[in-house]
Amino acid sequence: EAHAAIDTFTKYLDIDEDFATVLVEEGFSTLEELAYVPMKELLEIEGLDEPTVEALRERAKNALATIAQ
């Protein structure tokens, strides 16, 4: 499951495998979680700032909209 989540994140969020791995290690496994989890939870991840989190959430929401079509 972790590998599938990493693949999904790299494909749809335009991030590298290392960043995707950090997200999975922090407990995220779906685009929905990244799109809708409280921003505070993402900001608790070391190295993430508000602009990065906002961009990540926007990419996740856009990916979900694209997949739904």
Score class of each variant (00 low, 15 high):
17 E>A: 12
40 K>Y: 12
37 V>L: 12
23 L>A: 00
28 F>K: 01
3 H>G: 11
58 E>G: 05
67 I>R: 06
12 Y>P: 00
5 A>C: 06
27 G>M: 02
62 N>P: 01
4 A>E: 10
15 I>C: 03
10 T>Y: 04
63 A>P: 01
22 V>E: 05
45 I>L: 09
57 R>M: 10
29 S>G: 09
19 F>M: 13
18 D>A: 15
33 E>A: 08
23 L>F: 03
10 T>L: 13
57 R>N: 05
61 K>F: 05
19 F>P: 00
59 R>K: 15
58 E>P: 01
2 A>R: 12
51 P>F: 14
42 L>Q: 03
8 T>N: 12
40 K>E: 14
68 A>V: 09
62 N>G: 11
44 E>F: 10
2 A>C: 09
14 D>T: 04
55 A>W: 07
11 K>Q: 11
30 T>S: 11
23 L>Y: 00
11 K>S: 07
25 E>G: 11
53 V>D: 01
32 E>M: 09
26 E>S: 15
49 D>F: 06
61 K>C: 05
22 V>T: 12
65 A>W: 03
33 E>P: 00
25 E>L: 15
20 A>H: 01
55 A>I: 11
68 A>C: 08
25 E>A: 13
68 A>T: 10
26 E>Y: 15
47 G>T: 06
39 M>H: 08
52 T>A: 11
47 G>F: 08
44 E>C: 09
17 E>Q: 12
21 T>M: 14
31 L>V: 05
58 E>F: 01
38 P>E: 12
67 I>L: 10
56 L>T: 01
52 T>P: 02
43 L>C: 05
10 T>S: 06
20 A>G: 02
41 E>Y: 06
50 E>F: 13
17 E>M: 12
32 E>Q: 10
5 A>R: 08
11 K>A: 07
26 E>H: 15
48 L>R: 02
63 A>Q: 04
17 E>G: 07
4 A>Y: 08
33 E>T: 06
7 D>E: 15
23 L>W: 00
35 A>F: 08
16 D>S: 14
1 E>V: 13
31 L>H: 01
44 E>W: 10
28 F>W: 08
10 T>E: 05
15 I>L: 07
55 A>S: 09
28 F>S: 00
42 L>P: 03
31 L>D: 00
9 F>K: 01
39 M>S: 10
13 L>I: 03
15 I>S: 01
40 K>D: 13
68 A>E: 11
15 I>Y: 01
44 E>L: 14
39 M>N: 07
59 R>C: 06
61 K>L: 12
34 L>G: 01
15 I>V: 10
32 E>G: 07
33 E>I: 08
22 V>C: 08
52 T>G: 10
35 A>H: 03
29 S>K: 14
14 D>M: 08
44 E>I: 12
64 L>A: 04
20 A>N: 01
7 D>M: 06
62 N>T: 14
26 E>G: 15
5 A>N: 07
14 D>K: 06
32 E>K: 06
12 Y>K: 00
43 L>A: 07
23 L>Q: 00
48 L>M: 14
64 L>H: 03
39 M>V: 13
42 L>N: 03
60 A>C: 04
5 A>D: 04
41 E>D: 13
61 K>N: 07
14 D>A: 08
7 D>Y: 04
48 L>N: 02
67 I>Q: 07
7 D>Q: 10
50 E>T: 10
45 I>W: 04
6 I>D: 02
66 T>W: 04
54 E>G: 09
14 D>E: 12
65 A>D: 11
44 E>D: 12
31 L>A: 00
44 E>Q: 15
36 Y>G: 10
63 A>G: 07
30 T>N: 07
31 L>G: 01
7 D>L: 07
29 S>R: 14
33 E>Y: 05
33 E>F: 04
54 E>F: 01
46 E>D: 12
58 E>K: 10
29 S>N: 12
51 P>H: 13
35 A>G: 04
9 F>G: 01
3 H>V: 13
2 A>S: 12
35 A>E: 03
43 L>Q: 06
37 V>I: 11
60 A>D: 00
66 T>V: 13
31 L>Y: 00
45 I>Q: 03
29 S>T: 15
48 L>A: 05
35 A>I: 14
43 L>P: 04
30 T>Q: 05
58 E>R: 07
16 D>V: 05
27 G>D: 01
11 K>Y: 09
69 Q>I: 10
6 I>G: 03
28 F>L: 07
26 E>I: 14
46 E>H: 14
22 V>Y: 10
38 P>S: 10
3 H>Y: 07
24 V>F: 13
47 G>W: 12
65 A>E: 13
34 L>P: 01
11 K>D: 05
45 I>Y: 04
53 V>N: 02
42 L>G: 04
49 D>N: 09
33 E>H: 09
8 T>A: 14
36 Y>I: 12
18 D>M: 12
45 I>D: 01
33 E>K: 09
21 T>C: 08
60 A>E: 01
19 F>Q: 08
67 I>F: 02
